[in-house]
């Protein structure tokens, strides 16, 4: 059992939790992920590590309540426990040796791009953080990002925070201003990462993306997380989750992501029914 040390509501459906998991905290590095299971009936759900505190033995996760397990997790309170918490899994990001990087987060992806930006910043790289959200109510980690970047631009699709545009618009703008990046990190919805890669490919800027596909064990056993990279089949859990964005077959990944859509709806429906019973 793993204790919830802290819970914070970041926006309407996005929550932050600090979980007591000393073994995971001891080894965690930016880019790695954990798998949690809320209760005996729960799914095994992968989440990228947002932060960690080795002394406290805690790992921070940030999640959006999109499926039954994340909704159940969101209902847990500080001091309560979750059943399983495994990690750190996957390979740490390789972020050494870059001079100037644009770190882009889309929506919840910002929670994952944050530790990468922080790592780059601490390694002495000049960091431009870009984060995009649908509207101003969905913005997360703005203050945190500002602290670990030399420049931070938060943009919204509808312009409700005063800056309108997609992250790709901002990236183009920054490149046009003459910023010479030797690295772009893009983490968010597959469509967004694909769009970023289309731009950086043009400019020949190395681009790291992070995949978060369907998986069960997270240790290479199920093959459910397989993606196509440079014409080969790779497992996001053991070969990733970071990949060279210019080699990833995003169209394939986008279509595979839809496999359980119908089931997710059914599970959510069930979740609401159970919720009503409890009310």
């Amino acid at each position: 059992m793993y204790k919830i040390l802290k819970k914070k509501i970041l926006s309407d459906s996005i929550k932050l939790m600090e979980i007591h998991a000393p073994l995971v905290a001891k080894k965690a590095q930016a880019g790695q992920f954990i798998i949690f299971r809320v209760d005996e009936k729960g799914e095994r759900v992968p989440l990228t590590i947002a932060d960690y505190d080795r002394e406290k033995g805690s790992v921070t996760i940030i999640f959006q309540e999109v499926g039954k397990s994340t909704i159940k997790l969101g209902q847990k309170e500080e001091g309560e426990y979750i059943l399983d918490f495994l990690g750190p899994l996957g390979n740490p990001s390789h972020l050494e040796g870059y001079k100037k990087a644009a770190v882009i987060g889309g929506g919840l992806g910002t929670a994952i791009s944050y530790p990468q930006a922080k790592t780059l910043y601490n390694l002495g790289c000049e960091v431009h953080a870009i984060a995009g959200f649908r509207n101003k109510d969905l913005i997360i980690l703005e203050d945190e990002l500002k602290q670990i970047s030399h420049r931070c631009i938060i943009t919204t699709d509808d312009g409700s925070n005063g800056t309108k545009g997609f992250v790709t618009d901002i990236l183009k703008q920054l490149i046009a201003e003459g910023n010479k990046y030797d690295l772009v990190v893009a983490i968010g919805p597959l469509m967004m990462m694909k769009a970023v890669c289309d731009i950086t490919r043009e400019y020949g800027i190395k681009t790291i993306i992070s995949m978060n596909p369907i998986m069960i064990d997270g240790t290479g056993m199920c093959g459910g997380c397989r993606i196509r990279v440079g014409g080969e089949t790779k497992f996001a859990c053991v070969d990733g989750p970071d990949f060279d964005g210019h080699l990833v077959d995003f169209d394939d990944a986008i279509k595979r992501q839809a496999m359980y859509k119908k089931f997710e709806k059914e599970a959510l429906h069930q979740c609401r029914l159970e919720g009503m019973k409890n009310a």
Partner: peptide, 29 residues
């Protein structure tokens, strides 16, 4: 890569370990 292609490991793990045959009473489909 098509949806509906499983490794036997994934298919059997969903069933045996995650009890997916009880979906939606368990969460794994």
């Amino acid at each position: 890569s098509y949806n509906g292609v499983y490794s036997a490991n994934e298919f059997l793990t969903r069933i045996n370990l995650m009890k997916a045959y009880e979906f939606p009473n368990v969460d794994t489909p």
